[in-house]
Design a protein around this nucleic acid. Structure first.
Lengths: 226, 226
DNA sequence: TCAAAAGTGTTTGCAATACACCCATGC
DNA sequence: GCATGGGTGTATTGCAAACACTTTTGA
């Protein structure tokens, strides 16, 4: 198997996750020079025989052990001096991960990968803070028009969890009744007729995202704006 | 002056223009192999000492003679086999050109550059049709939320021209009264108190885009949706 | 019985839409 | 005077926003 790298083309990934405490970003401590031990976006070099999307997929798999992650190209950063040793152009991707599926032990590198609250990201190497901000902005824009939020939630979720997610991403409070009205009217959720277990209050109903319905509506040009 | 190229990184430009007959795209006939003489998006290789944006700017300047063109990065295409001779990754940009400013004679290459109606683009080399479609889609999305249409019109324009432009980009008819109401209510146009000359009907008023007002409103988070 | 979150409708205001006629100009 | 596009207002509808109380459950 070929593993030769294009050493002037890298991929960097802005990996988002979400849990009870808010929106998170997955960062690593660099294993090699330059800037060894400093916080960075997960990334790597593109191999000679792989497409860019495949490369991003591979890097994510190596880091998190997960396949089938939502992945989208973000922007390409190519300033002459962005990387100190030589000229490296980086194609940034952003990924949405169901944080509960992600298992730290799955990966060799993982001990050095940590979820950081989105608003407490440390200083990153090179131009990675710029890339991160670009990713946050894109997530904010996209979530308003495409139902991608579901990629960050467990398969079964409550309407409150969904609302908390939107509030975290958009960074503003939403009205509960209006939010539910809007979401349910899109007819994209399957009511599972199940309830939460073991909560110290009225148990919420669980829902699931209806992918088939989504495809169908999308094909008809339906507008998913929140 | 350095002119060495990164021979695995190219820039391709989707260049839009607009005139009385509709929305146009600027295409060239390839001057060199491979696929010499075939239609292609204008492009070139990134030089070792230039940023990606600068490279796109240079390529546009060489082709059209114009500086100060609206330019935005589109997407990066990096399939292993997209270019036949070797692996070349292409960063696509899209540009909006005031077609009347563009002077064919300004450029050495220009004799081989021709504006094509957007819906009559020929078959292009490599993956350029894919890039073109990507550009059209992005233009459609962006024009609805950012006042970029003005980049395609002469400095002074009539409301009808503006409407025709939007209709061409969005590919649908708009109601004249509602369109005017909406546009004028945004308060982004300066009424020049001048009129068209030499038309065989009532002369229309001329307007100009108010860049300062735009910056001001943008800073306040104003929504420019059409 | 208390705490904590789930769940539920109605009213109000604004913005999008639909729609038709008179006006100015050049030929 | 006629053909051509310029310019204008109102009524209706639908959607977004604001808003508060009852229900369920576990501790």
């Amino acid at each position: 198997m070929w593993k030769e790298n294009l050493d002037s083309i890298s991929i960097d990934c802005v990996i988002f996750g979400f849990d009870e405490t808010g929106l998170k970003i997955l960062l690593i401590k660099r294993a090699g020079e330059p800037q060894k031990g400093k916080w960075a976006l997960p990334g790597g070099f593109v191999q000679t025989n792989e497409d860019l999307d495949s490369s991003a997929k591979r890097i994510l798999k190596e880091l998190t052990g997960l396949s089938n992650i939502y992945l989208d190209q973000l922007y390409t950063f190519g300033e002459v001096d962005r990387y100190p040793l030589r000229r490296v152009i980086s194609i940034a991707y952003y990924a949405l991960v169901k944080i509960r599926d992600y298992n730290l032990k799955a990966s060799a590198n993982a001990k050095e990968a940590i979820w950081h609250p989105i608003d407490q990201a440390p200083k990153l190497v090179f131009d990675h803070n710029k890339i991160l901000n670009n990713g946050i902005e894109k997530l904010r824009n996209n979530v308003r028009f495409h139902p991608i939020g579901f990629e960050l939630l467990p398969k079964k979720f409550t309407l409150s969890q969904l609302q908390q997610l939107y509030e975290a991403i958009l960074d503003k409070a939403l009205d509960k009744r209006n939010f539910r009205k809007k979401i349910l009217s899109m007819d994209l959720l399957i009511n599972l007729n199940e309830s939460q277990q073991g909560v110290a209050h009225r148990a919420a109903k669980l829902y699931q995202f209806d992918k088939n319905k989504y495809k169908e509506l999308k094909a008809r040009g339906f507008n998913f704006e929140i």
